[in-house]
Structure formats: C-alpha cells, structure tokens
Simulated scan of single mutants.
Amino acid sequence: MKKTIMNLIILFAVLCIFGCNKKETNQKTQSEKMDRISVSDYGVTAKGDSIKKYTLTNKNGMKAEVINFGGIITSLTAPDREGKYEDIVLGFTKPEDYFTGNSYYFGALIGRFGNRIANAKFTLEGKTYNIDQNDGTNSLHGGKEGFHTKLWKIEAVRDAKFPTLKLTYTSADGEEGYPGKLSATVLYTLTDNNSLEIFYEATTDKATVVNLTQHSYFNLSGKFNKTVADHELQINADNFLPVNGSLIPTGEQKAVKGTPFDFTVLKPIGKDINSEDDQLKKGKGYDHNWIPNGKGLRSIAKVSHPESGRVMEVLTDEPGVQFYSGNFLDGKFDTKTGGKNEFRTGFCLETQHFPDSPNQASFPSTELKPGHKYHSKTIYKFSVKK
C-alpha cells in the first residue's frame, strides 16, 4: 500500500514538473511574440489626438511600422541580395504631413470604398446615395474623410503564431454619405517567411457597399528619389478595364495581349509606359484595374528589382488589382532617403473589387447586407533573387 502511494506521489510530481515546464515554455513563447511588438509615441494631431506607432519584427529582423492614424504603414523593410534590410515603402518625413490630408494616401487603409465611384453617387435597393465628391466629379477612396483619416483602435493579438496587430474602426451610418453602421477589422501579420499578411473583415446593420484595400507605395530599390521604371513587373491577368477621361471604367473588359498593358511575363514598368496609347494618356501612365486569372487566394503579381535583388509577390482572393505607377506624385515633399517624391518614384498594387462597381451591374458585387460578412485577404511576400 505504501509502495502504491509512493508511486502515485512520484507520478504526481512528474506531472506537475511537466505541466509547469510546459506552462513556462508557453509563457516564454508568448513573451517572445510580444517582444516582437513594440509601441512608441509618434505624434499629436491638430485635434490633440495622441498617435502611437506599433513596430512588428519577425525572427529575421524584418520590420513593419504601423500608426493608429489611418492604419498607415509608415515603414516596411525587406532584405536585398546582400542581406541588407531597407525601408521599401514611400512616406512622409514629418508625422504632421500624414495628419493633414495625406493626398497621396501613403500607406493607408482605404474605405469605405477603394478607388473611384462615378459622379459620387450610387443606387442601392432603390435609393440613391450621394457621397463625397473629392476627385473631380467622382468620389475617390471613400471621400476626403475616408478611413485613411480615422483613428483606428490597435491591439496586439496575443495568441497569434506571428506578430499580429488587430485594427478596428466603426464607421457611423451616413459617414461620407454611405449607408449603414459599418464595423471594420483589419489584421496585419508579419510572418517569419518575410510576408506581410493583411486580413479584412466588415459587418453592417444596413445594406451598404464596401471595398477595402491598402495603399502602400513600393520602391524596392530602397531609394525613394529614384523612379520605379527599372522594376520588372508581372501581372497574371489576361484582361484589364479600360477607363474614360475621368478614370472610370467604361464597362469593357479588354484583352492585354498586343497592348502596353500586357504584363503576363516580367517586363520593366518603364518599357511601354510612355507609348502613344490612349489609355496611358488618360492615366498619365498606368492607373487601371487588372482582372487576375483564377479565383480564391492565388498569386496575382510579382515585382523584381534587378539591382537590389528584391522580389515582391502579391497574393490575394480579390477579383481585381489596381496597378498605379505613381503618376500623381509631384515632388512637393521630401522622401525618407533624401530628394523629393517625384513623378513615378513609387508604385501601388491595390487588391480590390473593381472601381465603380456599385454603378456597374456586370462587375462583381460590392454590396454588403446585414447578417453577412465582408472578408478578404492579401499577402505581400518578399524574397531575394541572387
């Protein structure tokens, strides 16, 4: 009997030690994850709002910096072929420049509706809604006071496998003219394979339209006063959307073959950008929606910078992607690496539903109804070509 009791005591002690060690290991792993997320003061808006900067760091030393104003990515580093990490997203050198308009939408979360809506209005369930007219006669990127100007609540996700931030914002019914109270959630995750994963989710209490995206400008050279003409781009899409004079899609889906819009194989961004093409003249370069082949989460684009060796692959489950070649960058601001943010010194690959979808029945619907959930995922994956 004494032997049995002694064996049980020994077994209990072993289990306690194992359990304590496992708990300590879990706590250590959790602590290491949280150590990869730091918070610091960033600036104060004219309204007196204190803005924080959140820095995610993966095990390789790659960093992503995000502020709670506009959910803006102010910095994102990636290694070159020599292993040197450099910032590869455009942005302002002064915090206040983000707070006073950010007319370029540098690094921002875009909503409620990414891209343009013709004549700043749409009809939903028989009712016409007039939204903010901030791009000529059109509405662009959710209006002048869109999601890029809002204060997002940010918190670290403690049970995530990799450093992850959860951003939330609730848009009131009628904000910028849009119907319904929209509750939006965005996750930024920096993985150990040097990928920035972005997950979007939204719900509404009234029928509305929604099209969220991320508006970072990339320059893989890490030198923001250099053009991106030497970057090689591939877009896995056989068709794109031609636009009219105000950059609204005409409704036609046109084959890229035989046009300057054919990026089905890698080619320099600058190769055809100045050709005598009516569509390029309208956009002052590329500012169009491509229709990536396939459905679901798939690789839709790849960008390579031969000099540095940096490569960026874009994966998404969205039906469209806007390739914008930085045609409206105008040199009015200093860059983070010296010089100015001149014409075409950055490019965007904005994963999205098609522009003007609420007004074009042939396009994939952007309508969201109560009881349903909007969700989308995009991955920017970085690697090196030796």
Rank of each mutant, 00 (worst) to 15 (best):
F261M: 15
T335Q: 06
D87K: 07
E125P: 00
V314A: 03
V89W: 03
I131M: 09
T25R: 13
I10N: 02
K63H: 01
D135S: 15
T204V: 10
L76G: 01
G91F: 05
F106L: 13
M34A: 10
K23I: 14
L182T: 14
G146L: 10
D205P: 04
G146R: 05
F224D: 04
V265D: 11
T149M: 13
K385A: 12
D41L: 00
N193H: 11
C348E: 03
L190N: 09
L15C: 14
T137R: 12
E65T: 02
A120K: 08
S365E: 02
F99Q: 07
I248H: 02
G146H: 06
Q27W: 05
D35F: 01
N341I: 12
S304P: 00
T378A: 11
S50N: 14
N58Y: 03
K47F: 03
E307Y: 03
P260K: 04
N244W: 03
D87M: 09
G83Q: 09
V256L: 07
L329P: 02
G270K: 07
L196P: 02
G143V: 05
I9P: 00
L167N: 03
E65N: 11
K267A: 12
S308C: 08
A120N: 10
K284S: 13
N327H: 03
H305F: 02
I291K: 12
D135T: 00
N26V: 07
G177N: 07
G83F: 04
Y105L: 12
V14F: 11
L15T: 12
C16M: 14
I9H: 00
T208K: 06
S376F: 01
G107P: 07
E232Y: 11
A229C: 00
N289V: 05
L315M: 13
Q30H: 10
R112H: 03
S246V: 14
S325E: 09
I72A: 06
T250A: 07
Y98G: 04
D49V: 07
Q253T: 15
K336H: 08
K23G: 11
Y374Q: 02
G70C: 06
K336F: 05
K284I: 01
N194W: 01
F323I: 09
V303T: 11
T74R: 09
D173H: 06
E32K: 14
H215R: 06
